[in-house]
Design a protein around this nucleic acid. Structure first.
Lengths: 215, 215, 215, 215
DNA sequence: TATGAATGAGGCTTCATTCAT
DNA sequence: GATGAATGAAGCCTCATTCAT
């Protein structure tokens, strides 16, 4: 009895693992395909071929093509959050913002598919996009609030924070599209872009600590 | 102007005029359809039906569906430039920027289709999108340069201007999507959004003349 | 008539005629396919192949596969009504009923596809089936009423007529399935079937004029 | 009895019993599913889900989906025969026929799935349908023969009996479909239907003893 | 130039059945 | 015997584009 149960458990675990692995394969294939061809060209046929499974298999793991597409961005978005958090030091608030800004572009180079997945999601995976936006927005506002508490930001209301965060996200998006796309991959963001961002932020948002104030 | 032409009667037109008239009808139909359903749903069948012409007629005026889609944004984009220019006064540079920012959202309410056409163009009409971007970007950089010449902006290089412009466009796009969409049309942008934008600009970009500094 | 048109040569038809001709081809193909394989196996691919047109063409003439299937029975059903009417003489009511009964089976032999199209329609083309049923039922009830007026039937109410009609239709369906199907087509109904029907009707429904009353 | 077995607890069954129990569960599930959704929607997935077993399990008990579907009607058909027999009294032949007719509709209300299973079987489970037909037909003919022997029916040959039986079955089928289906279940057959049937039978088939003309 | 039917590739999804565990 | 993921064929439908009238 005990033995039987034991082997049953192992078998089941194996099954579960196999299952998860297949799903993971499909996920990765989708990431690659969407990253390379965009959502519009990410047909189930293409994804499953890339994953090396039959088309029917797809529907053992996802209700529909859309369901997968909607899960794509939030999943990678979390990876991004962790990545950026790990790259943010303990300097003052303004400097941390610059670090986050830079880390965002570092992540894009690390996960080249991310950019396209992010940018197109709004129209091809709206519900996934919304989820991602909420994830990022709330985290970001929390950061700004903390900075305000610490005295690094003055004169901005919570509502204004939310608007600011949308501007920042929008700015990053635009910049990344303008400067990071290239024929064969993603390149570094030019220095002048970062310097422009720093100026805008340190002067416009933060209590100018990020810039060496000329005496 | 689009509207004027559109509402003109179809009376006694010669061959050339009839031709242009038909093309114009298709253009307007496409604007409506894309504005309402998005590029993805803007099939040739739908557009020609809305225009009241046969499907085949479409290909007498456009090489392909994509060609029309690519022309859509640049065309309306110019309308927007004119609209904003007409709404910009002669105040100081910082105030003018705020005026432009507001005028942008006014235009969105005036031409409700614009928002969707603009936002989706990046992915469904990339070449048209690029053209629009260039149009706007060069015009905008020219404005900033003039402001710098006039002493309203200091300390920004031409390259940085370009980056700034992209950030501004990105910010507007995000904000418009966040605050302007609504169930039955486009609503006004909340005041706190405009105030947040003003603070960011007047402090971060311009030589703080846009804010009345309380003594 | 359907047949006449169908076999007409395709010589110099104008647009409208060509269009109707194509639709007719699809109709006939569907009749053949459903008659031979049943609705379930009547895929659009099979029908269009039989019709000699592309699959896409199908949807220029019918909204959906179901729409065609639903039109099939009522269309042939009308042919049947005409056929039976033409074979009904001017004898007394009871004899006419027997004539109709026989003509029904004659029609089945004339249009062998009819049987299957009729029998399966209830489940595969319910709305078309309903329409056919209404067509037949109202016509039949009218006939019975007239017979009652003429004194050939007594003692049946209108409601009972409706029930009777359903029984008659059901009986025919069953009988046709039982006796008319065969490996390579449809065979004649045995005499004893007709005689059984006659007895049931002339004694049960009509005022026994159809039988030579033994003195 | 089916129901009794179905609701029995799964306690302490040996191998053979467990096996039969599983098969029975699948049977019942199929009955429910086909009764509710029809054969066409009765996918193996749906049936096994309803039965609470894995899809693979299905194929340990049935060669194919079709095999199960073909067994469905004959099985329930026998239940029906028993049911009707139990409700048939010892009155004269004509009255018994009316009793059977009524009992048929009673059974439909008792086992609501039966109607759909019966009606659709002809096309979705033809071999099962044929088997059922043979079961019923032979039993019915035997009854009529006995009535003839007893002098209740005259003037019908054995072959004619068979035709009559098919008519009766057809009539019932039609009537049940016409009068017994309803939005939320099966309703009683209207009185005028039964009266119409009685008239047809007592006059057309039997030696008019079934109708007592009240003076 | 205008028309609109014809085309056929390609998309998403379902499903009976198999098979390794 | 039970399980359930994997398979791949097949189904319906959409749509940009072509072409004869």
């Amino acid at each position: 009895m005990t033995e039987a149960r034991a082997t049953a458990k192992v078998t089941k675990l194996n099954r579960v693992e196999r299952n998860a692995w297949t799903k993971q394969k499909i996920f990765e294939a989708a990431t690659k395909v969407v990253g390379k061809y965009g959502y519009a060209e990410a047909s189930v046929a293409r994804i499953t071929e890339q994953a090396g499974v039959a088309q029917g298999t797809f529907y053992n793991h996802f209700e529909s093509r859309q369901e997968l597409l909607d899960q794509l961005l939030p999943k990678i978005g979390l990876d991004m959050v962790h990545f950026i958090r790990a790259r943010t030091g303990t300097a003052d608030a303004a400097r941390q913002e610059i670090e986050r800004f830079s880390a965002f572009f570092d992540f894009i180079r690390e996960v080249p598919e991310f950019l396209r997945i992010l940018n197109e999601a709004e129209f091809f995976a709206p519900s996934g996009y919304q989820k991602h936006l909420d994830n990022i927005s709330t985290a970001y506002v929390r950061i700004l609030r903390r900075a305000r508490l610490a005295g690094a930001i003055a004169d901005f209301s919570d509502e204004e924070f939310e608007a600011i965060v949308h501007m920042l996200m929008g700015a990053r998006g635009y910049l990344s599209r303008r400067y990071s796309y290239s024929a064969d991959g993603v390149t570094a963001v030019p220095d002048h872009v970062i310097s422009a961002y720093r100026k805008l932020m340190t002067r416009g948002l933060f209590n100018a600590s990020g810039e060496k104030t000329t005496p």
